[in-house]
Simulated assay, not measured.
Amino acid sequence: MTKYTQIANDIRTQIVKGVLQANEQLPFEKDLCIKYNASKMTVKKALDILVAEGLIVKRRGSGTFVKSISNIDMNRLLVSNQFRGLTALYSDRKVTSTLITFDVVSSNEEVTQKLNLESEEFVYNLLRVRYVDEEPYVIEHTFMPINLIPGLRKQHTMASIYSYIEADLGLKVQSSHRTIRVRKSNELEQKYLKLKADDPVAVVEQVAYLENGTAFEYSISIHRYDRFAFETVIVR
Rank of each mutant, 00 (worst) to 15 (best):
K3A: 10
D10S: 12
I11T: 02
T13E: 15
Q14K: 13
I15L: 04
V16R: 13
G18K: 09
L20T: 00
A22I: 01
E24P: 00
F28A: 14
K30C: 07
D31N: 11
D31C: 00
I34E: 15
Y36L: 05
N37W: 05
A38I: 02
V43I: 15
K44H: 14
L47S: 06
L47P: 02
A52S: 13
E53K: 14
E53C: 02
G54R: 10
G54D: 12
K58Y: 14
K58L: 05
R59V: 14
R60T: 13
R60E: 14
T64V: 15
T64G: 01
F65K: 04
V66Y: 08
K67P: 02
S68R: 09
S68D: 15
S70E: 04
N71S: 09
N71L: 10
D73H: 11
D73L: 10
M74K: 13
N75Q: 11
N75D: 10
S80F: 04
S80V: 02
F83K: 12
L89Q: 09
Y90H: 10
D92W: 02
K94Y: 10
T96F: 04
S97Y: 03
S97P: 00
S97V: 02
S97Q: 11
S97T: 04
T98F: 14
T98I: 12
F102A: 09
V105T: 07
S106A: 14
S106D: 14
S106E: 15
N108S: 03
V111K: 05
V111F: 09
K114N: 12
L115N: 03
L115Q: 10
N116H: 15
S119T: 09
S119L: 12
E121V: 02
E121H: 05
Y124V: 02
N125T: 05
N125A: 10
N125E: 15
L127P: 00
R128K: 15
V129L: 06
R130I: 01
Y131K: 09
D133F: 04
P136R: 03
Y137E: 10
V138D: 06
I139V: 12
E140N: 08
T142N: 04
N147M: 12
K154I: 07
Q155G: 01
H156Q: 03
T157S: 08
T157R: 03
A159V: 07
S160I: 03
Y164W: 04
Y164R: 00
A167T: 03
G170W: 13
L171R: 03
V173Q: 06
V173P: 00
S176C: 11
S176L: 15
V182F: 07
V182D: 03
R183D: 12
K184H: 07
S185P: 00
S185L: 01
N186S: 03
E187I: 10
E187W: 08
L188G: 02
L188S: 08
K191L: 13
Y192T: 06
L193W: 05
K194F: 12
K194H: 14
L195H: 10
K196I: 01
K196C: 09
A197H: 13
D199N: 12
P200T: 12
P200R: 10
V201A: 04
V203T: 07
V204F: 05
E205M: 05
V207P: 09
E211G: 08
G213W: 10
F216C: 00
F216E: 02
E217V: 01
E217W: 00
Y218C: 00
S221K: 15
H223R: 07
A229R: 14
E231R: 08
I234Y: 14
V235K: 13
R236H: 11
